[in-house]
Design a protein around this nucleic acid. Structure first.
Lengths: 220, 220
DNA sequence: GTCTATAACCAGATAGAC
DNA sequence: GTCTATCTGGTTATAGAC
């Protein structure tokens, strides 16, 4: 009981710093957040922050990395369960909406800090990109599962995923004008179904039926 | 010839400052742009900048205001011409895409500086809002015209306009990851048509036909 | 690992000659 | 309206005791 806390003190401080930094940076942006602000917010002196992260840029990279792993850990598997397309779509949209609602900081970090690319370090740029790529991959796989594409039409899956993510980003942007703006899954649902149908993807699983279109196997 | 330039020098300097400031702020964000950067970029001393705008915040407001008026002047009238819904929709989407392509700075200013609301002045916040409100109003009126709503279903027009703008914002965000990302009007077109149809808006003008107004279910 | 103290610098903003 | 020179305060970052 005497050494466990001692051993933990470092990591607990580290986390506290990341908490404050993440909160501030997601709200005010990278450039507008100063080390002394973070120091005041977390109660640790500036030098401790530098001891842990080395530089302001280092904090930024660490904040992003933690946000990314947290978000990815919270995302459900890309294999969306459900008996038919519409059921899986609803599940998927519900998941997106929830992730969006529960991790607003992560999204805003990605948005706000993405702007910084101009003069950010290579490490920071790489971390931002990794974050985004992970999201894109998850969305693509999920959409693929929802529409039972099974990797058959990568372009379609890509388009649907991109469309979903753009709507989500757009909503995140809208949110800082009207903070109560929610991800409107209703319109998005209609749009995704229409887009899929437009590309010839069967959106209604024929109960006993095979799937039309050149050789492909039943989805479900 | 001796006094005309003299008279203009002030406004020309003012414009030069706004050019540099707008460019820098849209690329790097408000907080990351310093007065001395602007001074270096436009070749005028800091004090001239302060003489013209009084404060950094003043520059920001002026930049935004100019971007807004420029964008609004470039936007075509909200009365979209065209014989049928799809024709008008294509016109509308083309206009959005072009405005988007030709005024990337304006959009990015709106996006990047929108984040600053946390600690921006009241004047700045008001200007950001005015900018956005103007865009929303234009989109709503245009959509209304495209689908011949004539003010009949404000909620539907609102939803379609919001959806369009969110897609556009999302694309602007995507753009700073892949600078060549274009506004994909194809998917957006499909989505808007589906959304309109989903709300019972006739998307195919009956040649001789009047418009069925209240409970309507044309579909196709 | 945490603290106090401080170096070196750059930010926003102003004074006043011209 | 434009310039040089400058003030004040906050910024990133480090030194060194504990």
């Amino acid at each position: 009981m005497t050494q466990a806390p001692a051993q933990d003190r470092g990591t607990r401080s580290r986390d506290a710093i990341l908490d404050s930094a993440g909160e501030l940076m997601s709200r005010r942006g990278y450039a507008a957040t100063s080390i002394s602000m973070i120091s005041t917010a977390c109660g640790l002196p500036v030098s401790s922050i530098y001891w842990h992260f080395g530089s302001k840029d280092g904090i930024y990279v660490a904040v992003l990395e933690r946000a990314r792993t947290a978000l990815l850990a919270a995302l459900p598997p890309a294999e969306v369960p459900g008996g038919c397309v519409e059921e899986r779509l609803d599940t998927f949209l519900g998941e997106v909406e929830e992730a969006f609602r529960r991790h607003p900081r992560g999204v805003k970090l990605l948005l706000g800090l993405g702007m910084v690319q101009q003069d950010a370090s290579a490490a920071a740029v790489a971390e931002v990109r990794r974050y985004r790529d992970a999201l894109v991959a998850w969305a693509r796989d999920s959409v693929s599962s929802v529409f039972a594409l099974e990797g058959r039409c990568p372009e379609v899956a890509d388009e649907l995923a991109r469309f979903t993510l753009r709507t989500a980003s757009g909503t995140a942007v809208a949110r800082w004008f009207e903070p109560d703006a929610a991800l409107e899954t209703g319109p998005l649902r209609v749009a995704l179904l229409a887009l899929a149908a437009h590309h010839g993807v069967p959106v209604r699983d024929a109960p006993g039926g095979g799937v039309r279109s050149p050789g492909l196997t039943p989805g479900e």
